[in-house]
Design a protein around this nucleic acid. Structure first.
Lengths: 193, 193, 193, 193
DNA sequence: AATGAATGAGGCTTCATTCAT
DNA sequence: TATGAATGAAGCCTCATTCAT
């Protein structure tokens, strides 16, 4: 509701900051309202309840991201290159917003089953994109035709996710972007024909 | 404290069941006490607070598991074989205790930052074991000497973890054990020299 | 204030409908505004606060009703006949507006002490009318001269009120109007000389 | 639950006092707890929620009262005498507990539809008792055989209720007990054969 | 060692009212 | 006059922990 109003975005952005700085369980609605510079009640003109704020955080940000990835891989020709762009833009995305990185990798995972289920719905779009790259690679003969798409997807996503989580848990001390080529190489080798 | 008393184990086992069946946020101390067949207050004779119960769940169970893996790989000669044994016994471990699988893959991740930090401490022993296999593989020339150990570890752990989580999220419908060879192959290819 | 403007009546009528359909506690100002086809803020150009709307509902409607009763009994000669007309027109009034019946018998009674006190002020006009009939009946020898006017009034009003409330609580299933003669007879007997 | 524990009664009694002194809408759980001399949370060991406290107030008190009436009319022989005892003990009951009188006549009526529905369930026992007296009176020829039991019940209850409410609204200034004979006479005349 | 009744802090949400336009 | 977006106070309930027995 009213997702195009400026305050909607204001509140979502405030939620990212508050969750990142205080943790999921300490992100009270009143803190988010204060950070957004609105009254507590105003939150409920834009979101049905607290859970909806959190869903929106993920949906808005992940939505932006899927667009970025789609654009990034559009320019590429081979599945191998597309895979590289996906890894690199995923890294670049969270590297560019340290608060968001904390939220997606650590805090949002503390949500309850229902919320995580709904987050997975949003994630699906990303995984579908990944699947299409994998299928293309197999068809073109770039990847081994014997690989199980589901397992390959889990390897790719699991590796990327684990790499980013480690980076966040180490306080984003080292340069995540530099890891992209090696992660790409590890993943690719696993699927080479 | 008093970890050798029978009630200690009774409470830890009760916690696994209660968390698996009710979810992390619905696992009240009183429920755990009831499942363990003791009074609420008794819990606090064995655990300083609720967080300690959850830590213990992970420490006790993961401790058992690390032992299992250590024994499993002892018999093997090559790093490649050891890696296979690690994957297979990891799958076998959680395949054999559906409650524990839910708890490690879904519920315990909803805990707060502090708790997850301490869980990672316990995980370290597992990761150290993994690192030693990777190093051995490189030294023996089984794996590519150019791979970054940290990244390789993240790929291996990320892939295994993501595979198990997917299996749990799909209600453990399909046979996890059958996936071990293919997961092994995917991972191995990524590191082959 | 501004009771003669068309929007005033519009809002009062909307309040009756909203309260009847949603219940007293679910009759938010915004719902009344919507039903009346005006903006929330407009309500406050015509009413000081929400309580004033509710008072007005009763005052306007009860005002109409007292006029109706006055006219109805004007034609009658004996106090006995006037009493019958009062009962019959009371029944007829609420029988003709099912929303209003719900509001006066059930919903408005959920208001707080202050509001109920002010409603009683409005009711007084009705009770004064009733008292005058009772006095007239005593003076004319139709009713027992020994009856306590206050108690008699309470019996008459209590009986009528309880009868209507029962009818509303039974979802207005049976014909209220048919009960008038018997209610009249019961009441009258109580006061006969 | 645990209705026989002393704290259950303690809380119910505290609720009567708090509601009478502050009004239904100002009777916060915390006030009731304070008046009862227990912690807020303790309330919830004895009552599922706030509504259950209010139901219990009525059920416990009305339950006591129905017993009193049953005992009072047991000694009487005629329906006429029984009716007098019912009126007199009803008056005597609320005359003896000014807080309870305010609660039953004014405050509890502000509750929402659900609560009032459940209160009516409790009231039913009283009305059944009243019906049995009326039937007995008709069978014995004390009351007119042509009267409609339902209407007669509404007259009796309506008159008693209205009389007590008036007394409470007038701050219990006059002596309610003295009104019993006249109320009895008014009611009785209405039903005499 | 064991019990379990009692404690009390803490947060999401609603909605009457305001006020800039 | 009319609007409607924004405000912010206020309360029910849960549950980890304690402590008298």
């Amino acid at each position: 509701m009213k997702r195009d109003k400026p305050k909607y975005k204001q509140i979502v952005d405030a939620a990212v900051i508050v969750i990142a700085e205080n943790g999921y369980h300490q992100a009270q609605v009143s803190k988010i309202a204060k950070e957004a510079g609105v009254a507590d009640g105003t939150i409920y003109l834009y979101f049905k309840n607290k859970e909806e704020i959190l869903i929106s955080v993920f949906r808005e940000k992940m939505g932006d991201f899927v667009e970025i990835v789609k654009n990034a891989i559009k320019k590429e020709i081979t599945a191998t290159e597309k895979l590289y762009e996906m890894i690199d833009s995923h890294f670049r995305w969270l590297h560019g917003d340290r608060h968001l990185a904390i939220v997606t990798q650590l805090e949002l995972r503390q949500s309850n089953k229902d919320l995580r289920y709904r987050i997975n719905e949003v994630l699906k779009e990303y995984l579908v994109l990944l699947d299409s790259i994998l299928k293309e690679g197999i068809e073109k003969g770039e990847f081994d035709e014997k690989i199980d798409i589901r397992l390959a997807r889990q390897m790719v996503f699991g590796t990327i996710d684990e790499t980013i989580t480690s980076w966040v848990m180490n306080d984003q001390k080292y340069d995540l972007l530099k890891l992209a080529p090696e992660v790409h190489r590890l993943i690719l080798n696993g699927m080479k024909s």
